[in-house]
Amino acid sequence: MKAITQSRYGTTDRLTFDDIPTPVPEDDEVLVAIDAAGLDMGVWHRMSGLPYVARTDSGLRRPRRQVLGTDFAGRVAAIGSAVVGVAIGDEVFGTADGTFAEHATTTADRIAPRPSTLTAAESASMPTSAVAALQALSDKAEVIPGDRVLVIGASGGVGSYAVQIASALGAHVTGVASTPKLDHVRNLGAQDVIDYTQDDIDTTGHTWDVVLDGGGNRPVRQLRNVLTEDGVLVFYGGEQGGRWTGGTGRWLRGLLLSPFVSQRLRVLSSNVDRSTLLEVVRLTDAGRINAPIDRTFSLADVPAAIDALRAGTIRGKAIVVPCSVSTRDS
């Protein structure tokens, strides 16, 4: 099968469009034919091996996984002997190891039936980003109707879903983005926007009940200054910082400070499973969230897709479609 592979950490120049054997599912695994795969910053971190602390999961010297990609939508092609509740031919979406390929293996608890109202490409944009946004708002921040929510990085993958989900929960949403992306954020449902190239979050005179920090590298003190006295700050991203810890240093400082202040400072560790995917399906079928897809790339063009994401030129989500799947099917 065709796949995007890597044998060493580095830039997109290290990626290869290759022919490799189709994986065979273990007894507890499902083989899926990939119709579309989602791209998020986690792919860049696994490709580059940065920050270095992330290599404790992905491999210290070399990547443990040969094929990049996690999110997908596709069809069940084969099942292991111990798998129940899944049948060959089922249209599913979720996460797997190595989805920038024509096939990948996963387990039944990492997939769910694909939303009936969405294409494969739209469904593939959701697992990591929509689930992270949902868990940040519902589980970590416990947003209720009337809350004022500030989404930093509102034009990104998680941010685009966070704006929509916060609005669906009845919050008043302010999105932070650059000038070319403000209309995108407004169209997602943000009542107010902040152009960070003109103003910063602490120059508006406003405070928020909830701040989701997924962009930039603002100091914890600055983020706390725009929170209400009992507000909630949730870290879910931030791609700046040193090569060793990246943006995780701020997260640690926030967690250490949280027990001593009235504000609640929390870090999102998102987990994609069947129950959270089904909640995303519910919101989708109810018309509360849509897939904010900016561009679709062929499998061979994954390096260009990653470069575009890293350069910040993607609004919302980028999708990868394998060579054997036409864009009409996705």
Rank of each mutant, 00 (worst) to 15 (best):
K2Y: 01
I4Y: 01
S7C: 07
S7G: 14
D13G: 03
F17D: 06
D18C: 13
I20H: 03
P25T: 10
E26Q: 08
D27V: 11
V30E: 04
I34A: 08
I34L: 10
A36S: 09
W44G: 13
H45L: 12
G49D: 11
R55A: 02
D57I: 12
R64L: 13
T70P: 01
A77E: 07
V84I: 11
G85E: 10
G98V: 13
T106P: 02
T107S: 14
P113S: 03
P113W: 01
A130I: 10
A133M: 08
A141K: 01
D147R: 02
I152S: 08
G159S: 03
A168I: 14
V173R: 02
T174H: 06
V176C: 06
A177K: 03
P180N: 07
D183E: 15
H184V: 12
A190D: 07
Q191V: 15
I194W: 00
Y196V: 14
D199K: 09
D200W: 05
T204G: 05
T207V: 09
W208N: 11
W208K: 10
L212S: 06
G216C: 03
R221W: 00
T228Y: 00
E229V: 13
Q240T: 09
R253C: 05
L255Q: 10
S262H: 06
Q263I: 11
Q263Y: 06
L265R: 11
L268Y: 02
S270E: 12
S270K: 09
D273I: 09
T284H: 05
N290T: 15
A291P: 04
R295S: 15
F297D: 02
L309K: 15
R310G: 05
T313M: 01
D329M: 05
